[in-house]
Amino acid sequence: MEQVIANAGSIASGARESDTLEGWQHGGKWFCYGDHAIFSRMAGQGEPLVLIHGFPTASWDWSRVWPMLTQQHNVLTLDMLGFGFSDKPTDYVYSIEDQADLFQGWLEGLGLSSVHFLVHDYGCSVVQELLAREQEGALPFRIGSVCFLNGALFPEVHSPLLIQKLLSSPMGGLISRGLTRRSFERNFRRLFGSQNPPDRKDLDDFWYLLTYNNGRGILHRLIHFMEERRCHRHRWVGAVQRARQPMRLISGTADPVSGAAMSRRYRELVENADVVSLRNVGHYPHFECPWDVFSAYRDFRKRIIRP
């Protein structure tokens, strides 16, 4: 099944309801993961819906769709270790499996027996690991459904930007520490569709989150996830193919990294693939066209409960 939304809605439909970055931070809470502080946010009521952000950003990515989702769900999110307002240790071995441990422990600690996931980019890989654990009987809660947004579910069709390749190279440490605001903006803008590019305030916020607590110094450590995706392809792709819960892919097809080619591969490898394509939308559909993403997600959840 595939739906195509040709004219993505303006960011104004969701953006003006969102909080400022300062307000987003003040509305959160911290908890400990080992010796490290993790920033989290929770709001709304109903069935638990867990949002997982991508690289190299943070939970702030969800701010524009957050007010809509919290009207219908108990929404939970956090900044993964090394991202956003969470701690960013310099001598840490970051991995998808460790981030999955973080989410598993957090949700188990909250006493949740069942959750739904709406995930983006790096977060897609985290949920692929959690799906694999559930299928092995190693997860203490049930995954009710999964909705993916522009993630490298299939590494063979992932097209990283040059800056990402450099960060993952032997020169990664130098590239990470030497990243300038100008270079960041030039590469970050490339990820967006032509209709709703980030404005100056957006770029200020994303740069602040990236550099908060010496974040530039660990980018080369975080980006190891690209190699993890290749190493664990059989496990993580298999987890998606074996999944029995409802799944949907919402794809911004103008994404140069994991857009149209990724959605085509999804339709090839996932039985009865449910895909919503957003034309003229890039890598951050939930930030570029929050109303369209919310509408597609609302339709997905309604379809799940329809008799």
Rank of each mutant, 00 (worst) to 15 (best):
C231G: 14
Q241C: 08
W207C: 03
Y266R: 00
T253Q: 05
L191Q: 08
R267P: 02
I218M: 02
R264W: 09
R235M: 09
F206T: 10
Y212R: 15
T253W: 04
P198A: 12
M226P: 06
A239C: 13
E227R: 15
F188C: 08
R248E: 02
Q245W: 13
K201T: 13
A254S: 10
V240A: 09
R248Y: 01
P246S: 04
R189C: 06
W207L: 07
R264M: 13
T211P: 03
R190H: 10
P246Y: 00
S258M: 14
M247P: 00
S251C: 14
A260S: 10
N213W: 06
H220Y: 05
R221A: 11
G193D: 00
S258Q: 11
F188D: 02
A239V: 02
R242E: 11
I218C: 04
R221W: 03
L222F: 02
I223V: 09
R244T: 14
P198S: 09
I218T: 03
M247R: 04
I218R: 07
F206E: 12
E227N: 15
P197T: 05
M247L: 06
P246M: 04
P197R: 03
L191V: 08
L219Y: 04
R235G: 12
R190A: 12
I223E: 11
H220E: 13
N187G: 07
G217W: 01
S194M: 10
S251I: 01
D199L: 07
C231F: 12
V257A: 11
P197L: 09
M262D: 01
V257D: 08
D255F: 04
A260N: 08
H224E: 15
